[in-house]
Each structure stands twice: as structure tokens, then as C-alpha cells.
């Protein structure tokens, strides 16, 4: 019996890589008066709904998608959150 899972994938540039978008946004925030910002990183957020028998299976599929398409491992890293749809 397949269940429906909702996955949220957060993609960002790898730590240590220059993040021009992030630093430009940080400067803009500072010029709007927001001080004490230590860092702004820009990223992408992707939602995927998928069917699988188990959560583990869904996770495995999701990791595969990240490796194949969603994430460019040369410059990006990702984290995700996955749960069964109620």
C-alpha cells in the first residue's frame, strides 16, 4: 500500500562558496536599518509530493532526486524535511 509523502527541500550554496545574492541582500537589509546581521545566505526551496511504501523509501527516492536533478552538488548542498501527508 503506497502512502503519500510531502517533502520540503532546502537548497543553498555550499558553505565557503561566495554567495553574491546573499551578501547583496544582507547589504540591502543593513541599509534598511537592520543591524547586527551576521550572515544572509540565499537559497531555493522546493516542495515535492511523492508516493512510497515507507518513509524510508520516500527518503531514498528524494535523495536520488536531489542527487540527479534538484541539487548541483558541485556548488550546492541541501537539507530536507519529509513527512506523511495526513
Amino acid at each position: 500500500m503506497q502512502k503519500l509523502f510531502q517533502a520540503k527541500v532546502y537548497v543553498s550554496l555550499k558553505k565557503g562558496l561566495a554567495d553574491p545574492q546573499g551578501s547583496t541582500i544582507k547589504e540591502a537589509l543593513e541599509s534598511l536599518g537592520y543591524r547586527n546581521l551576521s550572515e544572509v545566505r540565499f537559497g531555493k526551496y522546493i516542495e515535492v509530493k511523492l508516493r512510497a511504501k515507507t518513509k524510508k523509501g520516500a527518503e531514498q527516492k528524494l535523495k536520488e532526486m536531489c542527487g540527479k536533478l534538484l541539487v548541483n552538488p558541485i556548488i550546492e548542498e541541501y537539507s530536507y524535511h519529509i513527512e506523511e501527508e495526513g
Partner: peptide, 11 residues
Amino acid sequence: SYGDYLRTGAI
């Protein structure tokens, strides 16, 4: 403007 970062025109 601002590299089109975040969204075009947003900054």
C-alpha cells in the same frame, strides 16, 4: 539593479 538578486527590482 542589484544584480537582479532575490527578485528583479526587489532591492
